[in-house]
């Protein structure tokens, strides 16, 4: 299974002016689209919804946006040092503005995208439930984007653990990645996993460490200068909102 390094693919698509239709094979294009949607559907959907659109409209817009990106290639030329997060939002807003002139029904991507729709119905409902009152669309986007980055890193960690044959272990440890440990519950958990409390501590520590590294990698892929990782992380933290 290839490591999904999404933004790499995105940058292929978004090298404005250089991308030509047919540059990517349809398989690659579809894979790219699926990944893009999988990763960034939620923040954009949240944004569109917060703008006051109905569920179906928002959904169409997001699908159309990604499909068009793959189809036509290049929405706005990437500036040097652009952050992917900001770029994505700007591109989407640009797209939405243009969409006013067109009938939305025509923009339901290609056939390649319809298969993913079913999954997002649930996510849409979740979004409604989680939406925070008095939050601007931009804030909603930022917040969901940050959450997605965290979720993606977690997913990568889960994948890694699965490939190492520790899927079940990790499933149990996952909720304990954060939070203060209580001795009693730790001992219980250790017993459940069949290790000592000490080994459990070490394992948790390593997982956390690895998660941190994966998160940094995720963030690094969306910005240009690796020295900006910390700045971006802090920005994401702010985007998460108040506790």
């Amino acid at each position: 299974m290839p490591q999904p390094f999404l933004t790499t693919r995105w940058s292929i698509i978004a090298r404005a002016g250089e991308w030509k239709p047919g540059m990517l094979s349809s398989d690659v294009a579809r894979a790219a689209l699926t990944e893009l949607i999988g990763a960034y559907w939620q923040p954009l959907y949240a944004f569109a919804r917060r703008q006051g659109r109905a569920h179906s409209d928002a959904e169409d817009l997001v699908q159309g946006f990604f499909a068009r990106a793959v189809e036509k290639g290049g929405l706005i030329p990437t500036e040097r040092r652009a952050r992917f997060r900001a770029f994505l939002l700007a591109a989407f807003q640009h797209f939405c503005a243009n969409e006013h002139a067109r009938a939305t029904a025509q923009k339901r991507g290609g056939g390649a995208t319809t298969h993913a729709l079913a999954d997002f119905a649930d996510l849409a409902r979740l979004e409604d439930a989680r939406c925070v009152d008095a939050e601007s669309p931009e804030r909603a986007f930022e917040r969901r984007f940050a959450e997605r980055v965290l979720e993606q890193s977690l997913a990568r960690l889960r994948d890694e653990q699965q490939r190492a044959g520790k899927a079940e272990h990790f499933a149990k440890l996952e909720p304990h990645l954060t939070g203060v440990e209580v001795d009693q519950s730790q001992a219980a958990l250790a017993a459940e996993l069949g290790t000592s409390a000490g080994a459990l501590k070490v394992a948790l520590h390593r997982l956390r460490r690895r998660y941190g590294e994966l998160l940094r990698e995720e963030v690094a892929a969306t910005i240009e200068d690796p020295r900006e990782i910390d700045t971006e992380l802090v920005a994401l933290r702010d985007a998460l909102g108040a506790r």
Binding site: T178, Y211, G212, L240
Partner: peptide
Amino acid sequence: RCSDCGAVKPAAAPCPHCLLQLGLSAA
């Protein structure tokens, strides 16, 4: 609620704030 930072978090899942902090600590 996260037992570390007190933030609201989904049940049976890690706290997003603390997860993000892991990213900063990993530097």
